[in-house]
Nucleic acid binder design. Structure first.
Lengths: 125, 125
DNA sequence: TTTAACCTTTACGTAAACGTCAACATAAAG
DNA sequence: CTTTATGTTGACGTTTACGTAAAGGTTAAA
């Protein structure tokens, strides 16, 4: 059996508060087991949390992250459901490609600006 | 002299509301000229708005977008100020690199999941 | 001249994503 | 047995990023 975590371990691991983790549970993104009254998180839960936080860094809403988490679930369904899932996955991939382009544009712009700054510095001396 | 826009033209161009544009002004991200009582936006303003919206797609707060906009301003300052600006630009570029990695990980994961779905579909037939 | 289509400011409302208590349970340590 | 640390469930507060009227000014067409 693989490692489990309690809530504060997990919070420390990702540098977030326990409140945040409970909030994600409230929103249906996590559903940890219980040992008595206390929450117990599995390795799977940890991965889900990681996905959520990665999504956050990319500006996803929790709703979107929940969608993504659902995608990772094998959730063996009918052929029709699988097709729909594939469609949703492709949409997400498209959106991510768009973000890639946005980032690249920003990187170019910032690199340009930095160049101009460096040039201005050289001109001062 | 280059083209100018009124608020609703600009809103239509970017598919946002005029309220949104005024809100960005409230927050100090835009400072359009006035023709009488009405706002007049220059090409520069349009570019700024574009930067803001690009930032939004990447999960930036308006505060962060304002920072970025300030970076693009030549704002000829002292050597010290230029150095600090270069530092901030490099930090942003670092952060964007991090986002690139996040996106690439997500793309890989989603591609994996899609493969599994396709495989599951093939196994059903 | 009135009606329509714009613009303006001011102000209150709202959803998302938590922060921040409060009040209580429990288990280990001194 | 009391303190200390950690957990729990509410419940209300806060910030961000706008939405949604309300009340009014200006220009152009009918």
């Amino acid at each position: 059996m693989s490692k489990t975590y309690n809530i504060s371990e997990l919070a420390a691991k990702f540098d977030i508060t326990t409140r945040t983790i409970r909030f994600y549970e409230e929103k249906g993104l996590l559903t940890p087991a219980r040992l008595g009254n206390n929450r117990v998180y599995t390795e799977q839960d940890r991965v889900k949390l990681q996905l959520i936080l990665r999504g956050k860094r990319l500006g996803f809403s929790l709703e979107e992250s929940r969608d993504i988490i659902e995608m990772y679930d094998p959730a063996t369904g009918s052929a029709e459901q699988l097709q729909r899932l594939i469609g949703r996955i492709q949409e997400k991939r498209q959106a991510l490609q768009g973000q890639l382009e946005d980032i690249e544009m920003m990187l170019v712009d910032l690199a340009d600006t930095e160049q101009k700054c460096q040039q201005a510095l050289r001109n001062m001396k």
